[in-house]
Design a protein around this nucleic acid. Sequence first.
DNA 1: ATGAAAGCGCTAACAT
DNA 2: ATGTTAGCGCTTTCAT
Lengths: 328, 328
Amino acid sequence: MADNKKVTIRELAKRAGVSEATVSRALNDSPRVKPATKHKIQQLAKTLGYRPNLLARSMRTNQSKTIGVIISNIANPFFTAVVRAIEDEAATLNYRTIVINTDENPGTERQAIEMLQGYMVSRFIIASTRRGVDYHLLLGRTPAIFIDRLPNNNGDYDTLLVNNADGAKQVVNALIAQGATRIGVISSSVSTAGQERLAGYRMALQENRIAVDENIIKCSDVQMRRVRRYTSNLLINQACDGLFTADNEIFLAAMAEITARNLTGLKLGTFDNAPWFDFLALPVTAVQQPTVEMGTRAVQRLVARINGSDKLDEPELIRLSVKLVKRN
Amino acid sequence: MADNKKVTIRELAKRAGVSEATVSRALNDSPRVKPATKHKIQQLAKTLGYRPNLLARSMRTNQSKTIGVIISNIANPFFTAVVRAIEDEAATLNYRTIVINTDENPGTERQAIEMLQGYMVSRFIIASTRRGVDYHLLLGRTPAIFIDRLPNNNGDYDTLLVNNADGAKQVVNALIAQGATRIGVISSSVSTAGQERLAGYRMALQENRIAVDENIIKCSDVQMRRVRRYTSNLLINQACDGLFTADNEIFLAAMAEITARNLTGLKLGTFDNAPWFDFLALPVTAVQQPTVEMGTRAVQRLVARINGSDKLDEPELIRLSVKLVKRN
DNA sequence: ATGAAAGCGCTAACAT
DNA sequence: ATGTTAGCGCTTTCAT
């Protein structure tokens, strides 16, 4: 029965008539304790409802089997998908995860990392906010792996990105194949991913010997209102018959404008596939990001780094490939 | 400069030529230390890059200003919206939050709560998984507030729900006003919310003197395939001209079926409004849940309970009202 | 205004 | 196979 007072190792030791050390060993399933004793103690712990004080344990061992996951926008389906994969893989490898959302705010990001370090969390998976955070200062040699975005101090940490340029190139190529002749683009200046996707757009045009017109390239902060303005500018003033948006947030804003103005006959392409694209009147060709692979590999690599199981002296930059979902 | 070795209070004390106690007081901005000394110590801490060991502090004080947030599905936009509101309000009130996702798994939920308790987290906001978790045993008198779903041991904890029945009634009334004469419903048996929404559906029909036909009422686990089967059954075999889905997941699956079969002329209603409903050919009338209010009030109430600032002896069940977004 | 000392619960040498 | 002991970094009486 659960007594009111909290059960500690000392308490168990007293009741079992053994030392605290033996209890600790029994609870940690050490081979250095007699099976009978071990069993007895474990039983007792269960009956008394013993809960280890993880604080004390971490403090003593100077580590907590916990991975800090720092993401920049919890409302973005891309990130939640990655987070779920991270959680799954971490659980498999017997790690805990703590997720903190920074809302693209570098200050919050710094605080979050410092806070977790205060809790002895010493492995991180980070989707960096804007450039401007000095991870050297913050992390030192703490194992960390960056996802989705190239961090400020790249080259010093493992980084896991998708092949943004290639994905963008594929989408734009598909739009061209569908007959689009003048394709506008709206990208994000917030992350490195946005710039790479823009580069991919240019590559596709060049491959198809289409002149790049800087007037139909828009790249800035993702702000609903601004994206809507860009959209009408591109599709009406600039007479584009195709539009490539660099992520799901931009796509949403652009679609709002397209719907409001009742524009039709367009070829749309975007990063971040979503199930509801199937329901739209306009066909959307979309890049499906490998969220599960990204989350899974991030955890695996982090854990490998810790155990030093494979010799990974040099931090690596890994590119995952993307999949194209065509609709027309 | 950031030395390699970690800076502790002892280190600061040595360097400042004062006792550890004084350093601790200075760092905590206690009035019991001379302003000059305080300032000097705080400066030193900054220069040396001192980071408090939160583990040690929590262990000593037996509390951590951290709220554990247990949600059942991080991929559900409803929950992520609530989480963001929780984070915002918590930050304002100077609390930390730790979010853990249980994926509707009661085992994971139990583990998560125990784990956090091990870290001295002693206030929780919980979106319960299926009934079957005994919160008395798990939480005891630990302050906790339940959101979205009525927990097993209701009456013992504060609970914050939306007015599910009323929301459902409003949607169904709207569908009837739009001319639907035979409205099927698909709800979820996973949570208490699903049952309440079903009750609201029945109320609306009764108010409008429409006979309730049990053949067009479907309620079960939310499984993509099953929902799709229900959908075609209702809309084709049962010849419904309207459909009410009880949450965003069900709606997504139903829309997949509707799109695949190219069904038209339907009146659709659902819980959980989404921006992209504006882009659909079929008009969707949707209940907008008060996610911000729910998150904000959950935190406020939890903190009030802790401080005992207002006398809230009895746990309360609070219902938040919803908003209807009509489209036709 | 400051210091000395105890102790939170746990684990890991180092005994026995 | 088990016990003794020290100590992680911090806060907090109780002295001075």
